[in-house]
């Protein structure tokens, strides 16, 4: 049975994401989805997803908000970042050219998370972490 262990509503302002972002990372650590001392990539993926939702989804419109919801279901953690925009297809976001000045957020998330998709019906980016025996969480980058 899926259990939501963290949720937060974040205003569409990049200046206001740090507190909920760090709380979310702490929740992932407490639930053993991310090992202590290895929070870097979890924080990075969450920040990229939230900033994308604010800038591209909500067009930085402060009347809109972003909702972050994290649920666990046995051996999978599902992280959803909801926005109020038109949505997009993750698979259609091209890998950035070496000197492109944007488009790296999704590239980073795709590399670090087990799976990432945009759910157009729910209007949310869905990221998945599978619990691992050895390192409990986000893929190892050593």
């Amino acid at each position: 049975m899926a259990e939501t262990f963290f949720s937060a509503v974040i205003p569409s302002s990049v200046d206001e994401i740090q507190e909920p972002l760090l709380q979310a990372v702490a929740a992932l650590t407490e639930r053993h989805w991310v090992p202590r001392g290895r929070e870097f990539y979890a924080r990075l993926c969450l920040e990229e997803a939230i900033v994308n939702a604010i800038i591209h989804g909500n067009a930085s419109d402060r009347s809109r908000s972003v909702r972050l919801e994290m649920t666990e279901d046995r051996d999978v953690c599902i992280i959803k970042v909801f926005d109020e925009g038109e949505g997009f297809s993750v698979d259609e976001v091209p890998l950035p050219h070496a000197d492109a000045v944007s488009g790296r957020g999704i590239c980073i998330i795709r590399h670090c998370m087990e799976d990432v998709q945009y759910n157009k019906e729910e209007k949310c980016l869905v990221m998945r972490i599978k619990r691992k025996v050895e390192d409990h969480g986000v893929q190892d980058h050593e």
Binding site: F40, R43, E47, E48, V51, R104, G105, I108
Partner: peptide, 17 residues
């Protein structure tokens, strides 16, 4: 520096160019 996001990369690229 222990942490940065892709926004920093974009700023570095602008300066590089």
């Amino acid at each position: 520096v222990s942490y940065l996001s892709s926004a920093v990369l974009n700023e570095l690229l602008k300066v590089h160019r």
